[in-house]
Nucleic acid binder design. Structure first.
Length: 575
RNA sequence: CGGGGAGUGGCUCAGUCUGGUAGAGCACUGCGUUCGGGACGCAGGGGUCGGAGGUUCAAAUCCUCUCUUCCCGACCA
């Protein structure tokens, strides 16, 4: 590939509307250009990086026994109506009518389409298991596209769907995908973790997210410093607290706390610490079209984890209620709410159940209570893990120390069960002749996001530093004097030799000054740079430079191509 | 959808407060000098100042409406 003939419009300055580093660098390196909000054109070099990811994904999916197909992007509304998602999916699903006024939509995902295919074509247990995948452009009309390729509306995704005869078999398929994903992200040269994810109403540990660790990540994840435990913050279980102390329950008492409403002010006033206080938060809970208010009790220094609350209540939405709504529902002003005698549904964090003789609001203005004990003075409808985990908590798996990091979600594996197959009547005959719904799993990888994540994780002030497996080009040859026949001759030879070795090489044959060529080479992030110029004139050698380490060495022209080929091969080696 | 910015040549921005008929740097074209980390000189090309309406002798600048875009919150690969 000759630079002079390639559309590779690098930018010296950073476009003003790019915030995160991967977005800035991809624009500057001439990989992408924005067409409209969240929609990008992939220019030649950007596309090459994307293809690298696609090929790794393809190889590993095939290795895991999955089969590639390609499903339509335009989908009929009827399919989505069958599963109820046409209503449920919301405005993120881009809908439109065709010329015959038929309701249609652009596929944000393909469960419906694949299930439709399966119900038509899979009839017997002999056809199973089967795993089908595609690499395709998806469209989701995101509320707020941002960060370039990290959260576009249009993006390339690999999605796979497994079909099995039973839950146990489905779990096997899930495990296979889990393993394949680990190989994929390892091969991409990424620092990542597989984390337990919120699996919503289905429950169980049948959903994992693959997170690339990077400061710009949109999710917070909890990782154990000791074992392999990793979980999405929302999902991270807090270990059950040790049984409470055996303090003798004291008599319940009211205390006056005029004007003291916040945890800190109450504690200061009463001379206690927040660990002795229980706070009561009122949530507005939506369940379908029903709305009610539910109180949540937890220790004064803890925070509610709304996802846990949502799952516990089976709610579609939970939101902290406004002061006025709280008063209307409970008859108590915020700040004085407590578990004893509260008028609305009450749930408690597990920690509250083991606290002894604690303080809480008295459900009366300017009054708190002391010596409260769960079970004696009040009984919550449910006691569960409802709070956010903190780094002070022990690892739920091994008791080790936890830490928090930011992550970019690049993959998600999910066990679907029979949700779609039942809704769409996708069944097969088992070995007994019974008509049985297919057991499904789905597995996604954000291909374009992987490229962005790789750049987030691999860059310096000069530009991108591609890991070899994702590099759009493996070597860049810089011809420092295109007018010098000797140099150009040597460069052309090397270019031909490298290509003959199967090395992907970009030849910078532009009539530009050296500084410009070096800056562009660094910006593009190509792992190896060979410079032919002054040094070659002096002693007939090429200069080889490693983009990541900056190390420079000289190469003899006769062996340069072979030497590079073997280095590249070793960098692509998979164990 | 709520909150906060920003729209002036391909890019980064000045000019807007205090109206007077559009500017810099980079990029681009030509010539010359340069040539190992984003050179220099000279000469050029390129702008409906996001759009519509209004105020005014006069609008990038003031007023109204509107569109786009970026950032912060709820969704997700």
């Amino acid at each position: 590939m000759r630079y002079s003939e390639t559309l590779l419009p690098t930018l010296k300055e950073t476009p003003a509307d790019a915030e995160v580093i991967s977005h800035q660098l991809m624009l500057r390196a001439g990989f992408i250009r924005k067409l409209t909000a969240g929609v990008y054109s992939y220019l030649p070099l950007g596309l090459k990086a994307i293809r690298k990811v696609e090929n790794i994904v393809r190889e590993e999916m095939d290795r895991a026994g999955a089969q590639e197909l390609l499903l339509p992007m335009v989908q009929p509304a009827e399919l989505w109506q069958e599963t109820g998602r046409y209503q449920k999916y919301g405005p993120e699903l881009l809908r439109f009518k065709d010329r015959h006024e038929r309701e249609s939509c652009l596929g944000p995902t393909h469960e419906e389409v694949i299930t439709d295919l399966a119900r038509r074509e899979i009839h017997s247990w002999r056809d199973l298991p089967i795993n089908l995948y595609q690499i395709q452009t998806k469209f989701r009309d995101e509320i707020r596209p941002r960060f370039g390729l990290m959260r576009g509306r249009e993006f390339i995704m690999k999605d796979a769907y497994s079909f099995d005869v039973s839950d146990e078999a489905s779990l096997l398929s899930y495990q296979k995908m889990f393993d394949a994903y680990k190989r994929i992200f390892t091969r991409c040269g990424l620092d990542f973790r597989a984390v337990q994810a919120d699996s919503g109403a289905i429950g169980g540990n049948y959903s994992h997210e693959f997170m690339v660790l990077a400061a710009t990540g949109e999710d917070t994840i909890v990782v154990c410093n000791n074992c392999d435990y990793a979980a999405n913050m929302e999902k991270a279980e807090v270990a059950a607290p040790a049984a409470g102390n055996d303090a003798v329950p004291l008599a319940l008492e009211k205390v006056e706390t005029p004007g003291k409403r916040k945890v800190v002010t109450v504690c200061e006033f009463l001379g206690i610490n927040p660990q002795q206080l229980v706070k009561t938060m009122v949530y507005r809970v939506e369940k379908g079209d029903k709305v009610e208010f539910v109180a949540v009790c937890l220790r004064g220094d803890r925070e509610v984890e709304e996802v846990k609350l949502k799952n516990l209540l089976g709610a579609s939405e939970v939101e902290l209620a406004e002061d006025k709504a709280v008063f209307d529902a409970t008859g108590v002003p915020t700040g004085y709410l407590g578990p004893v005698g509260i008028r609305i549904r009450l749930v408690a964090d597990q920690e509250v159940a083991v606290m002894r003789n604690f303080y809480a609001g008295g459900n009366e203005k300017n009054i708190h209570m002391k010596n409260i004990n769960c079970g004696r003075d009040f009984t919550p409808e449910a006691v569960a893990d409802l709070r956010q985990i903190t780094i002070k908590d022990p690892c739920p798996q091994c008791g080790g120390r936890l830490s928090l990091t930011e992550g970019i979600e690049v993959g998600h594996v999910f066990k679907l069960g029979t949700r779609y197959s039942e809704a769409m009547n996708a069944t097969f005959q088992d070995s007994e002749g019974q008509e049985t719904p297919l057991v499904m799993g789905c597995y996604g990888i954000g291909v374009t996001r992987v490229v962005a994540a790789a750049i987030e994780q691999n860059h310096d002030r000069d530009g991108i530093i591609f890991p070899m497996p994702l590099a759009p080009m493996q070597v860049i040859i810089v011809n420092l004097d295109t007018d010098d026949e000797e140099i150009t001759g040597a460069v052309e030879n090397l270019y031909a030799e490298l290509q003959a070795e199967g090395v992907e090489v970009l030849l910078d044959d532009r009539e530009e000054r050296p500084g410009i060529k070096f800056k562009d080479a660094d910006l593009l992030g190509i792992p190896w740079r060979i410079t032919v110029g002054r040094g070659f004139k002096k002693d007939g050698s090429f200069e080889l430079r490693n983009r990541r380490s900056g190390e420079v060495e000289s190469l003899a022209p006769e062996s340069a191509a072979r030497e590079l080929k073997s280095r590249i091969d070793s960098e692509l080696q998979i164990d």
